[in-house]
Design a binder for these strands. Structure first.
Lengths: 139, 139
DNA sequence: TCCTAACTTGGACTTTGTCTAAGTCAACAC
DNA sequence: GTGTTGACTTAGACAAAGTCCAAGTTAGGA
């Protein structure tokens, strides 16, 4: 956490109270918040923080590779503070809950050359879908 | 194509000119159009068709499993008429082009029980990312 | 041919996100 | 400590994507 703020300062960031609060909110909860949820939580600590600043700061954190953007549903993007450990996502089709998961092997290996169409591959995102235990028992 | 319309009629659909046009647009181009692009093409054939109807029809086609919704970028959803053949997507990070691809093996197999958290898995979506040949040569 | 529930329409509205001009302030130099 | 300055923040207007609704239209069965 402090490391995060230190890393950011090391990259020339001005360490404003707004940026501190956004970074704290993301690190504080290991769930995947939308920008609006981040803003709501940030407002609790710093009532005058604006939506634009939250969007700006999230965008900067994504550019710096400190946070991942996750789009699982075509609605609001979600922000994943766990950017330093490769992982994929498991999403409940019932309630939308997201969990980080770690599949075995390299997902790129499953794509044969004949299916790469000359692309220079950089990675793969996998979204596993299913019903969480709660939703399975409550149909 | 005619089969699609027949299948839909078999499920109790009223076969209106609007629905016919939307189905034709989707089947006519094997690319992944956004709802607005579908609307634009539909208007060429049926000038008075409304955006609401296009959204309604696309939503119904998705519910019936005739068309897949693809959200690769957190912007507009895209619609994939190729719903009857399992496939994944390869997206160019440069220009956003999408290709259907067919990886080997079952993606679910890579997720061990210990990483399933009691979920009843129903499937997995994989988005491969990379630069297409055009974008590789034009930095 | 008539009837009616299903469908379509246009426009208002919501959600999510971006942009801008004007004001504020963190960090550096002194 | 004080001053300076460019980076940062703000409020609000704007835009894109999608939803909702009341009123009008129509496909398809009787």
């Amino acid at each position: 956490m402090t490391d995060l703020l230190e890393r950011l300062r090391g990259r020339g960031w001005r360490l404003t109270s707004q940026r501190r609060v956004v970074a704290e909110v993301l690190n504080g909860e290991h769930v995947h918040l939308t920008a609006d949820e981040v803003h709501a939580r940030a407002v609790e600590r710093l009532p005058e923080i604006s939506r634009a600043t939250v969007y700006n700061t999230l965008g900067e954190l994504v550019c710096l590779g400190e946070v991942l953007e996750v789009a699982t549903d075509g609605r609001a993007k979600r922000y994943d503070p766990n950017a330093h450990h490769a992982h994929q996502h498991l999403v409940c089709s019932g309630c939308g809950a997201i969990r980080d998961v770690h599949p075995q092997g390299d997902p790129l290996a499953a794509l044969p050359d004949s299916e790469r169409f000359g692309f220079a591959l950089s990675g793969a995102e996998i979204t596993y879908r299913g019903l969480c235990p709660d939703c399975t028992n409550r149909p």
